[in-house]
Amino acid sequence: MITHLDTTNFEQLVTNAPGLHTVRFWAEWCGPCRMMAPIYQQTATALQEQASFGEVDIDAVPELANQFRVQSIPTVLLFKDGQVVDRMIGAAGQSQLQQLIQRHAD
């Protein structure tokens, strides 16, 4: 399951929550973002036991993109115990995304 994140739930579900959290920053008009959407969904289903999955629409919530210095989309940030521990910029395949997450899974 992918959770839609905004300023009302980001702290509770990501930065104040223990564990591993994957957050995709995207926009509706972004071609590579649309291309990566099913890959992100498949990865969320495959690795739901290892991490939570959320996404931020940068047009709807630009303050979160600014807070985490997201300058290109798609960008995937990996949070562990509230801190950014890794990032992937640009469209990626499922194996790349899974490797990113599994590198930080306990």
Rank of each mutant, 00 (worst) to 15 (best):
Q71G: 11
R69L: 10
L47S: 07
S72D: 07
E28K: 12
V61T: 15
Y40G: 09
T43N: 07
A17L: 04
A60I: 09
C30Y: 01
H21L: 08
G54V: 06
R69I: 08
A27K: 00
L13Y: 05
A17D: 04
P32Q: 03
A17S: 12
S72L: 11
F68T: 07
Q41D: 15
E63S: 14
C33P: 02
N16Q: 15
N16R: 15
Q12R: 14
C33V: 06
I58D: 00
R34P: 04
A37D: 11
V56S: 03
E11I: 01
V23I: 13
P18V: 05
R69F: 08
Q50A: 13
Q48M: 10
Y40M: 13
W26I: 04
Q42F: 12
D59P: 13
I58P: 00
T15G: 02
Q48N: 15
Q48D: 15
H21C: 10
T45G: 13
T15Q: 03
C33G: 04
T43Q: 07
P62S: 08
H21S: 13
R34D: 05
V70D: 00
L47H: 10
Q71F: 09
V14N: 00
C33D: 02
V61E: 12
F10N: 00
S72K: 07
Q48T: 13
G54D: 06
Q41T: 15
M35C: 03
A51H: 05
M36N: 08
A51C: 09
L13C: 07
W26G: 01
V70H: 01
V70E: 00
V14M: 04
Q50M: 11
N16G: 09
S72H: 10
P32C: 04
R69Q: 14
G54W: 06
Q48R: 11
A17N: 11
G19Q: 05
I58R: 00
L64G: 01
D57W: 08
A27Q: 00
P62C: 07
C30H: 02
E55I: 09
N66M: 15
I39N: 12
G54P: 02
I58T: 06
T45W: 05
R69S: 14
R69Y: 09
L13K: 08
G31H: 10
T15I: 05
C33R: 00
Q42I: 11
Q41F: 10
T22L: 14
F10I: 05
V70W: 00
A46P: 15
P38N: 13
T22P: 02
I39Y: 13
V61W: 05
L20H: 04
R34N: 10
F25M: 01
Q42N: 15
T45Y: 09
P62I: 09
Q41N: 14
E11G: 04
N16E: 15
F10W: 07
L64M: 10
T22S: 10
R34W: 07
F53E: 05
T15N: 05
F68C: 08
T43A: 15
A44D: 11
A51F: 06
